[in-house]
Simulated scan of single mutants.
Amino acid sequence: MDRSAQPRHEPDDPLGAFKKLQTAVAACDHAASQEALVDRFVARYPQSPLIGSVEAVIWYDGPGEVVLLRGDMLQERSEPLQRLGRTRLRYQHGHYELEARLDYHLLVDGQDVGDPRNQRQAPSGYGPRGELRMPGYAVSELWQPRADVPAGTITAFADVASGLYPSTRTIWVYTPPGYQATERYPSVFFHDGGDYLRFGQTQALFDNLIAAGLLPPCIGVFVNPSREHGRVVDYDLNPGYARFFADELVPWIDQRYAISSAPAQRVIVGASFGGLIALWIALQRPDLFGCVAAQSSFVSRRDDALIKLFQASPRVPLKIHLMVGSYETHIGPFDRDSGEANFLRGNRALHRVLQAKGYPVAYADYPEGHSWGLWRARLGAALQFLLSPSSIQAYTTGR
């Protein structure tokens, strides 16, 4: 049989096909013919983005005069998509790390439309976000609910008040499957608790880690910011909030749930501003919290005040997991000239201080941005580092 006569099937290469489309459009003078080329391409490759090994194309072919891209890859800036010839198709071509995962969205004539051609949607408190995953990005999705895994229980407390820091907030408590009041469980306290449940999918993460034997059965305490002040006031190195958390909230939980009093089995968690206050409380109250999971923490706040405090303070018995995205160099409306907005710089600086002081610390930065997609995917590793049975034994025995 003559194998050379058989049709050859080239491997599917959407990005390569787009580059051929660019060449074909450039060689074509007629707008209608250019649109016909785009029609054929879109029919064959309807999804955005188009991914290569270290490059990607985000594209849009819907209505609108001005189409802007905004996302992690642009560091809080907006950039217009480039038009392909005289066609309706607009695009942005970028180069990224092999393991990168980035959130982005499109603004069409000022309206946030996410990315209507992207089937991957990232968790966000600001509306729909498209997710760009490069080929080397690989994280076990332990936050996905599973029907074959026993589920813990969430109990809500709607109006938890403070006398030390006049305010109210909602708190949710997770108890593991088979919870027994006669046992004593490790505990994990979360700032921005409602967001960790909604966007971090932490209930399913607890269920799956516990079922797999990767985490001991533990109790999760999810604390919302106060209604009266909000998260920025609560978390901005606020001594009143810290007193509420340590001197009112922890005893309030201890009275109601079977929680271990050992600091090595009590974790405090936060992201961004929440990571800042988590680290600050733990440094001041190592009698309560022996472990911190700080995600993309705003440690550069107030001219690196927290970093300087760790540098100046005696080392306390505290185990710390730090992580941040390498795209977190210009975050929010904060001062860029002073470096306050550079979360990557701040977290790297804190890591160096903690290492020099002799803290047991794990640190990682990933090619990602300031997002729930990053925090959700990496929280499981942080909790295992802090609370796995072997980790607790090593921490408490000094090995």
Rank of each mutant, 00 (worst) to 15 (best):
A5R: 12
D304R: 15
H370R: 03
P176V: 04
A181W: 04
D115A: 13
L68W: 08
K20M: 10
P314I: 05
Q284G: 15
V353R: 08
P216R: 01
V250E: 10
G230S: 02
H330Q: 13
S226C: 02
D234Q: 00
G332T: 12
D192Y: 09
V267I: 14
F298I: 02
V250M: 13
F222W: 08
V57N: 07
D335Q: 10
Q180G: 11
F289L: 14
A312C: 11
V113D: 02
V221I: 15
V361P: 01
P216T: 03
E97Q: 13
H321W: 12
P239W: 01
V42S: 08
G52F: 03
V113G: 05
A204F: 09
A258D: 03
L164R: 15
P333C: 05
A264E: 15
R198Q: 11
Q6M: 14
W143E: 07
G220W: 01
V139F: 03
R184S: 15
Q393P: 05
L306H: 05
A100Q: 06
A271Q: 10
L205G: 06
L37S: 04
T87M: 02
L197Q: 10
N238I: 09
Y363H: 11
D72V: 01
D61G: 10
G64H: 00
I320F: 09
A242T: 03
I171K: 10
A305Y: 09
G114S: 03
V66M: 13
Q180M: 09
L164W: 06
Q355L: 14
M1D: 12
A381Q: 14
R77A: 12
Y165S: 12
R227Y: 11
D192L: 08
T153A: 10
D192G: 06
F157W: 14
L309K: 12
G358S: 07
Q75V: 03
G136C: 06
Y359R: 10
A377W: 01
L107N: 00
P186F: 02
E97C: 05
L74H: 07
D61T: 04
G110K: 05
G240M: 11
G290E: 01
W172A: 15
I307V: 10
D72H: 02
L81M: 11
A394R: 12
V149W: 06
R231S: 10
D103H: 11
Q384L: 11
T153H: 04
R227I: 02
G110Q: 09
S390H: 07
G270Y: 08
E99H: 13
I281E: 01
P63L: 08
G64S: 09
E141Y: 02
R376K: 14
F199Q: 06
V54F: 08
A349R: 13
R352T: 12
S391F: 02
R86I: 00
W143C: 01
C218A: 08
P11E: 01
R301K: 10
I154M: 05
